[in-house]
Amino acid sequence: MRRAALAFAALLAAALITLAGCAGQTFSFLSVRMKGGESGIYAAAINEFTLSSQKIPVTLTLYYSAESNDTADMYAVESARGELGMGERLEIEADCGGGGWFCARAEFYVDGQRQEIISDTVQYDGSGNRV
């Protein structure tokens, strides 16, 4: 048991050293969410969890199409840019436009490389209710 405890302590120390070695690196959990409401379609990009102190630059865009759920046919109706730290969110809202297909996309940059998250495509009616 004593050996196991020593091994456990050694591994914890190794983990801390590894984490220290990763200082300045990114370890984050990002999400992009969307929902409809009376005032319109709401989208948010959220930095749910991060270990590093640096903020992640994010561009959130809401796309819309009146006729198709194909993202290639959609066009941007709203966009915002911000830097997200732990627990911070970037929000945008767009008019329902008489109903149609919507999706949200968050572009972010890590180590100078562009990455993105795209939500599912959801159909809403003119009142912002999910169809």
């Binding site: 990114t26 984050s28 999400s31 969307m34 409809g36 990455q115 795209i118 939500s119």
Partner: peptide, 15 residues
């Protein structure tokens, strides 16, 4: 559950 849709991603970079 409060949203109609959500997508998530872990962003992990190592040395």
């Amino acid at each position: 559950a409060q949203y109609d849709t959500s997508s998530t991603v872990w962003v992990v970079t190592i040395p």
